[in-house]
Design a binder for these strands. Sequence first.
DNA 1: ATGGGTCATGTTCACGTAAACATCGTGCGA
DNA 2: TCGCACGATGTTTACGTGAACATGACCCAT
Lengths: 348, 348
Amino acid sequence: MDGATQKTAAGRRSPKRPSMADVAAMAGVSSQTVSRVVNNRSNVEEETRQRVLSAMRVLGYRPNTAARALVTGQFRTLGLISFGLGSFGNARTVDAVTKAAQRAGYTVNMIAVESQTERAVHEAFDQLTVQAVDGIVVIEAQILDTPALRLPPDVPVVMADGDVSLRHPMVDTDQALGARLVTRHLLGLGHETVWHVAGPEDSYAARRRAESWHATLKEADAAVPQMLFGDWSAASGYEAGRVLARRPGVTAVFAANDQMALGVMRAMIQAGRRIPDDVSIVGFDDIEESAYLSPSLTTVRQDFDVLAERIVSLMIDQIETGTAPAATAFVAPQLIVRESTGAPPPAG
Amino acid sequence: MDGATQKTAAGRRSPKRPSMADVAAMAGVSSQTVSRVVNNRSNVEEETRQRVLSAMRVLGYRPNTAARALVTGQFRTLGLISFGLGSFGNARTVDAVTKAAQRAGYTVNMIAVESQTERAVHEAFDQLTVQAVDGIVVIEAQILDTPALRLPPDVPVVMADGDVSLRHPMVDTDQALGARLVTRHLLGLGHETVWHVAGPEDSYAARRRAESWHATLKEADAAVPQMLFGDWSAASGYEAGRVLARRPGVTAVFAANDQMALGVMRAMIQAGRRIPDDVSIVGFDDIEESAYLSPSLTTVRQDFDVLAERIVSLMIDQIETGTAPAATAFVAPQLIVRESTGAPPPAG
DNA sequence: ATGGGTCATGTTCACGTAAACATCGTGCGA
DNA sequence: TCGCACGATGTTTACGTGAACATGACCCAT
């Protein structure tokens, strides 16, 4: 808790880990030669290399990251900031980024911002810069909206789900395309218009989906009904669904994610509406459950693996070249048509 | 890709970060005094401390983790190993552990093992020990079953979902209690017996749930039907559900997680069975969706936050005392009764 | 044959921090 | 009044690595 406690916290590892010097002594070479072997330099004679390698094996040598980082200034670690793994999209993104980073030889350091109070956000970033990272991936860029948040100017940043106006490279699913596919699909089935249950107002992804839904309706000369807002949760979708169920003439609902869609479905079913006979419902994300609901849910599938690959490669470019590419990359999503959508009821 | 590339990867941060020496110079003290201020030592005069603090602020000083770790041998970082965030339980556990670790001043370094081949597991652990961590949390202890995997003997380990036989402290939900609650609930409703769709055979959690289901049936003198196996996915639950739907007399099914329960539900509904009138179905996990299914799903809720708190505190105990408590802690889960369970059909 | 270039290897040093030890002043008890 | 303990601060050093530079052997072209 205080200074004294920290002093006792030294956690002695009894048999001191072997260092390069130990390996060098056993192999009968200088520690610099060991360093060359460890780093795969070309200018080491094969026989020497083998001798060093076997000494390393015998002693169980592991390079000391701290010492290496101290010298090179690199940590081969990425920081990852989000509001947590609660939402499907976040969890999938974090999972995919972690795996992509691993493939590139980087480790991922996770930071969860528990609330968007200025203090919480600051603490998270402090922890990350005090901690050793070569770059920061921001999963939900609204975090950056915190007033007076100054990112350390010398750390590369890549955003997933951000806004072009923020001065960092961004990689995201083409949310607008996804929403357009949904809206056109429903209009194409004969629905006069499409209602929308949007995600929270401060989410860039939610905003882009809503804007595109709006634009697509206008393009098609369809009426643009009042939009409802949720917070991504099934509970909020359920609330919105109860409102929509009371409204006659609602034949098609586009929820901004699958969980809200599920809530809408339940509210509709409870109100006696059949899906898709009376109402068509579409989600966004394609969570694993969606294919097994009854009826199964029409939705939009994002390619998180491609997304993550791009994020990581953009990140590593920045780290290795030291320059910030102003790139903004969009990954195309895919409409998955299932049982929850169909033609509007004839009365319609 | 090769050595030469790494050499150019030096990523120069133009304006060198200030070090303790810089702060010391500006404040007119020795760098050791700066160190004392940074570490909150008591023996620094208040006026001096203020002078140092203001110099730190002016220069934007941040302690260098690598240098500190090199000296202290501590990183204030926990390694977290799992198969990824694909499953709900994993994602929730990782999320909660991250947040708990953060509260304790630790950062979390995630490693995903992509497959359980010996090579993949080894790579993951190598990355983690090369990387700097003070301890390792293993989310799915089957990872440790990999033959010839030698954990570095000097790194503290805590398992979530492991087996007592493995020589590490473990913290887990009381899976046996959860399964017993489910089985008793169904028997109490009048079902003659309960069928079980288990998780994969190599999962300790799945095994404990299955064993407890079995034992509870025997205690009640109920017949113990043949157990089916899934892989946690809704798809595998669906397959199992199709098998069960063909079988007359199946009135109650306990699936080892909610996603498989969902698959079973869909198969039953497709086969024309009504839930819960004809068949009762129970899951495990209480994923967010379960409350909003139609019918909503009876399930078992795990307390991931308590779990994570215990994991982290056990971890930190080990790190700070250097000793491994042989503790095994179980966290009690809770049965959540919803619409998917009811009395068996009168035909019986 | 001799000088310059190349390759394997060794030596020295810096990175930024905290521990261990040294120094200096100050106050207090005998 | 003297000596000693204690508190504030400074000095030296180790931590493990990789960069820069140094050394020596050997080869090839003139």
